[in-house]
Design a protein around this nucleic acid. Structure first.
Lengths: 369, 369
DNA sequence: AATCGAAATGTGGACGCACACATCACAAAG
DNA sequence: CTTTGTGATGTGTGCGTCCACATTTCGATT
């Protein structure tokens, strides 16, 4: 441990291409050819120049570099269409932020959408996209099979893609950003069961599609949740009841929940594996069930309201703006700056309570300014 | 809700300064003077130029802008010296990342340190810094009074400063990044008490300095913790015992803890308001107390080891790299780009469990690459 | 020795901004 | 009528990348 100050940087001028040219007795053009491995340089001079680059630790001025690169590219995004202030809007906000930052590279992003409850709408959108031959695609593989097929066609056309929100291993994407669904479901269980009275019912609710299939994400989250249950042998102490909620049938949903209530065992907790927590809260309010510990996903305004009102105990969040922002930046990193990226990038499982949610939201908002 | 694609950007060329000059029949220099309010332009031309700028929505190319700005500034950081892999190193890593990004502006950062257990070392460092007249100062106001005095002197010399980690309202800093200590302490209590067996002892441990005073942060965290206790009237069901741990006296610390154990009421939980959780774990191991629910701060490697081993239930983290990074970027935002910043910026209260800590750490690491 | 050709190397401009500096017009002072 | 000053305005330079193009080098072939 030392208390003296240290100067890590010297005031010295930074090495420029022109300096390297002067030192090695060649022109800037030759240095440039070496720097970019464009060939057409004699071995002798190449080695000399490379030596100077290494020894003197040349680093290009990033600003000049960014200025001079003009890629004129067109990216396409394909995510579910969204209700205002819904989950997908957050991802798009992140994409938009990245878009602003790279617009001076003459890169534009076209936004396409599909209905997350209708796989045909997804296929239609992918066909439309393929016909326009974009330079890269950002999409959310909500429908697994259809997404794999889409990715194959992209690969044939040599169009790189990145995945956001949910992951499909079979897709050879440049990068994926999203949450580790299993761990997030496991964590939901952990938070729900800690301190929960025994010999009671725990509701597991899923928002399902008209065909009765849950989303890629939701299925994995439930799996993670059940893993915790099995690991701690909670089936003995709790009666876990699955209830599927349909997006467009309030009466039916209420009916199903009522059946559980009528079972006479008290309901102590409930988890929902989507961002529709606020709807679950609404149903339970209508059934006058006010003392249930509820846990759900994503910091949508309506969910935050329920969290602050004490109706929801925890929200699990996943930085959607950051996901949208980072997938785009990784595309640029690869296509423009030719730097390596990581394939799989898990965003943290963020646990929110009524006391800390405000700072969480404001911080994310400021990062996105 | 619409399914059709939308093109948000047109392929059109962006308006440049030269274009505005051509349109208005002046030179680029005159347009530049209008853009930056540097005066020395006739009213007639100024109005004409402003009209074009507004109407055609001119936005400067950020890359060219960054390139042309060369500020030649010297920032100074002043944070506690650190053990390798200690908390303060994380903050410095964030500062270093920002430093790399701005080095092409010819901005350098000098790192100064002090002993966080010795306020005199802080004062000595501030005097040394003041004598060199830096362009801006980044520091952590660990000692409140001394920090206020330092800030006053900086203000006299017109040197802006930013605060990192802990906040002092009395200091007129450009920005502060750190955690809301009260809420973080409150959350620690919430996590600790949920599901904790009643009629037991809960240890509150603080790392204190030789003079017996805790850090600014730790004091506020404990206050937040106790706020939860009072709010839920937990004094009735738990016996809360404060134990001060000294940084350099293992025997004494063990002794104090042993006294609590000897009290014959079982110890169910323990919280520590600093990043020294791993030491608390070590003590409790030595005393063969293995079933205590422990909560502490910061994702230091040693703490993470204890978390993964199940010896610590939760760690509360605060994105130190991000804090270091963002304070520097705010300085640049203000001094170089003359854009407004926010004074108070709370970083989220991040709750970590053994299952999700790996993704948290890796994500932060990649952001910092 | 002259010629040719291919590879190696140099030159210069465009990009787009900010800033220091040069230049210009015009009026007041000598 | 010339000099000096002053405000208004134009110009050149720095950066790295990526071109098109000019020029040089050098060995091989006539």
């Amino acid at each position: 441990m030392e208390l003296t100050n240290t100067k890590d940087s010297e005031q010295k001028q930074r090495l420029r291409i022109a300096d390297i040219a002067r030192i090695t007795g060649v022109s800037a053009g030759t240095v440039d050819r070496v720097l970019h491995n464009r060939g057409r340089v004699s071995d002798e001079k190449r080695k000399k120049i490379e030596a100077v680059i290494d020894q003197m630790d040349y680093k290009p001025n990033v600003f000049a570099r960014s200025l001079s690169i003009k890629k004129e590219m067109r990216f396409v995004s394909l995510i579910p269409n969204f209700d205002p202030a819904g989950y997908w809007e957050y991802i798009r906000n992140g994409i938009n932020k990245a878009q602003k930052e790279i617009s001076d590279h003459r890169i534009i992003i076209e936004h396409h959408h599909f209905d997350q409850y209708d796989n045909r709408s997804f296929v239609v959108a992918t066909e439309r996209i393929l016909s326009t031959s974009p330079d890269a695609v950002i999409f959310s593989p909500v429908f697994i099979e259809e997404s794999v097929a889409f990715a194959e066609q992209l690969e044939q056309q040599n169009i790189p893609c990145v995945l956001v929100d949910s992951n499909v291993e079979a897709i050879n994407s440049l990068a994926y950003y999203g949450q580790h669904s299993l761990k997030s479901g496991y964590t939901a269980a952990q938070l729900l069961f800690t301190g929960l009275p025994e010999n009671s019912v725990v509701l597991l609710t899923r928002s399902v599609r008209p065909n009765g299939i849950g989303s890629n994400q939701a299925i994995l989250r439930e799996k993670g949740f059940m893993h915790y249950v099995d690991e701690h042998q909670l089936q003995q102490n709790y009666q876990i009841v699955r209830v599927d909620l349909y997006s467009n049938n309030t009466a039916k949903n209420l009916n199903k929940l009522w059946e559980v209530v009528a079972g006479n065992i008290p309901i102590a907790g409930a988890a929902i594996f989507s961002s529709k927590v606020y709807r679950l809260v609404d149903y339970l309010n209508q059934l006058k069930l006010h003392d249930i510990k509820i846990i759900g996903y994503d910091e949508l305004p309506q969910n935050v309201t329920a969290l602050k009102a004490g109706r929801v105990s925890y929200l699990i969040a996943q930085r959607p703006e950051m996901q949208g922002y980072l997938v785009v930046k990784d595309l640029v990193k690869h296509l423009v700056y030719k730097q390596p990226t990581h394939r799989t990038n898990y965003v943290p499982v963020d646990i929110l309570t009524r006391e800390i949610v405000d700072e969480y939201i404001q911080f994310n908002r400021r990062l996105n300014e």
